[in-house]
Design a protein around this nucleic acid. Structure first.
Ligand SMILES: [Mn+2]
Ligand SMILES: [Mn+2]
Ligand SMILES: [Mn+2]
Ligand SMILES: [Mn+2]
Lengths: 141, 141
DNA sequence: GGGGAAATAAAGCAATGGCTACGCCTAGCA
DNA sequence: TGCTAGGCGTAGCCATTGCTTTATTTCCCC
């Protein structure tokens, strides 16, 4: 099982490879706001757990396992951002909240949230009605 | 700011006082599945942070701050359980997921989830429609 | 007053993951 | 082709968190 931090690294690495074709230590470090030496250490851990193949000074390649997991992690993060956006959470809170909760939800829960997001996507009227509920609750207090 | 573990202790303490009128070290320990010495230590920390007033061998009393926070924590936990239940997460996953995410959501997010739960509560037809979306998605794959 | 249960203190441990300092590699330029 | 700057890696260290073990203290009730 990957720790929260391992997931954050893997997520970032997958995204970098997806967008730029490669993931350098310095880019990972910058993205996660840690020092490069921390990245090297974590990469070695991810290698040991077979998420990627690492060659010193040569870069890294995600294994099938790492690719699959990375993809899921990136999608999960995006899904949760969408979810919080839909239910009306303030922009400035979303990223931090997602960074926190993403590591603590079962895949069962993720699937259910996916369904929920799709539910609101299919009929924008539903979002309007949700907003109405919100307004009523605010008026009440 | 309280750490996740501090929140878990405070939540449990509030609940015990609410249900039995008092919170003994051994009950707290049992509920959280830790040793009594761990409880004593954490109680001292909570005392230092003014969530409660602690007298050795005499028990503890929540301060207004502690009461207020404890109440919010218990309600937050319950809300999140309701939320996951509504969207169709399996019983067996709910407790663990809630235990994890509850510490990582802003109060803004909590409020929005409250609204969402109320949205489904007001019209059970909405839950049915959500279930329909789910079935369609399942049929698709 | 004594026995036993409950609570506390002290010490230490393990996991995690960050940082600093310094040394090593290599791409790319001179 | 050799140098070197900057990227990368290693080693050692530290902070945090929260738990355990063990030993001692206190309380309560007989
Ligand atoms: Mn994260
Ligand atoms: Mn993320
Ligand atoms: Mn919890
Ligand atoms: Mn809880």
């Amino acid at each position: 099982m990957a720790t929260p931090s391992m997931e954050d690294y893997l997520e970032r690495i997958y995204k970098l490879i997806d967008e730029k074709g490669y993931a350098r230590v310095s880019d990972i470090a910058e993205g996660l706001e840690v020092h490069p030496s921390s990245v090297t250490k974590m990469i070695q851990k991810l290698d040991k757990d077979n998420y990627l193949i690492y060659e010193k000074y040569r870069g890294l390649m995600l294994t099938p396992k790492g690719k699959k997991m990375g993809k899921r992690l990136v999608e999960r993060h995006q899904l949760l951002e969408n979810f919080l956006t839909i239910i009306g959470v303030q922009e400035d809170n979303i990223y931090k909240d997602v960074e926190g909760i993403e590591h603590h939800l079962s895949w069962d829960s993720i699937t259910c949230i996916e369904t929920l997001v799709e539910y609101f996507r299919r009929d924008p009227g539903r979002t309007d009605e949700l907003l109405n509920v919100r307004k009523e609750l605010e008026a009440d207090n």
